[in-house]
């Protein structure tokens, strides 16, 4: 899961979790595609430097790209707000497509595409940061960091354990797929509804395995004194008492400062827009917030 050589491994796990939380906040606060793109780019850089396995990182990239493209395309097609400017439009006048699409036809709207991209970039920022933290932090450090932030032990333990078992789930899903393939199933040879039904049925062995594994884990950790509501439980204490390095502290401080500045800028701009507060000396800030935030 982690590599000592990873660039992100120099950060204290608590700092990483703090940055992850702040990334989530930034994803909500930022609205302009340029700023979101910049932050999403930083998340992607962190993901590359996380020290995760190349296959995992490539899969993560593929998933993120697919998600962004999916958001952008669906919003471009189904965007309902005004103004909207069609890039491409098609208005069938008769036949099946007319009956299906009606008089509105099918159009791809520029504003919808931009809106979808924004949502996609938000996802990249939050998910990319999360994956970077997961790839660069070992389970016990993550657990300790979560406990440092007073996350209830039961929840922290479950979160960390689920991360550890995710690859196993992937392997089991792949095995179920291979089992279907060995018995002649091919999505290209079946009707779409048959493929859908088989794809759904692949969930069955995976879910059954999840339930079985969950019960074994529960019994195993219970037999070793784990109690989700026990404040003294867990591997938290030692690591949470350890002091962070100066670099981690400085990074955390800078991130908190930047977030406070962003929050203040957005609040002041919102107050100006809603005519609650206006001060002429803040006009450069209003302009900056309008164009970039």
């Amino acid at each position: 899961m982690n590599s000592p050589a990873a660039a992100t491994a120099v950060l204290d796990p608590r700092t990483k979790l703090l940055l992850l939380g702040l990334a989530g906040l930034w994803a909500v606060l930022l609205e302009r595609p340029a700023a979101l793109g910049l932050c999403a780019g930083l998340a992607v850089v962190a993901l590359v430097l996380s020290g995760g396995r190349p296959g995992h990182i490539l899969s993560a990239f593929a998933g993120l790209a697919l998600a962004v493209w999916g958001f952008a395309l669906t919003q471009a097609v189904f965007y309902q707000q005004a103004p909207r400017t069609p890039w491409v439009a098609w208005y069938p006048e008769t036949g099946f497509w007319y009956r299906l699409l009606g008089e509105e036809g099918l159009a791809i709207y520029r504003e919808g595409f931009g809106y979808g991209m924004t949502q996609g970039l938000r996802l990249v920022l939050a998910l990319g940061s999360g994956l970077a933290v997961a790839f660069s932090t070992d389970a016990s450090s993550l657990l300790a960091a979560l406990r440092y932030y007073r996350v209830p032990f039961g929840i922290a333990f479950m979160a960390v354990t689920s991360l550890r078992f995710l690859p196993l789930l992937g392997r089991e899903a792949a095995m179920a797929w291979q089992a279907a393939r060995l018995r002649g199933f091919s999505p290209w040879r079946c009707a779409p509804w048959t493929s859908g039904a088989v794809a759904y049925s692949l969930l069955r062995p995976v879910l059954a395995s999840c339930v079985r594994r969950a019960s074994v884990i529960a019994a195993s950790v219970t037999s070793r004194g784990f109690a989700p509501d026990d404040a003294t439980s867990g591997a938290a204490a030692a690591a949470s008492r350890a002091s962070a390095r100066t670099f981690s502290r400085l990074t955390a401080f800078a991130a908190l400062l930047a977030t406070a500045a962003l929050l203040a800028s957005k609040l002041l701009y919102a107050a100006y827009v809603h005519e609650v507060l206006y001060r002429s000396e803040l006009r450069p800030l209003y302009e900056f917030a309008r164009r970039w935030l």
Binding site: S140, V160, T161, I217, G234, A235
Partner: peptide, 22 residues
């Protein structure tokens, strides 16, 4: 199945898990 019971990413931590809980 040992894979279903190991919750840590280091042998030492795995053995210490129960002791820390205690």
């Amino acid at each position: 199945c040992p894979d279903d019971q190991i919750v840590s990413s280091r042998v030492w931590d795995e053995v210490a898990f129960g002791l820390r809980n205690a």
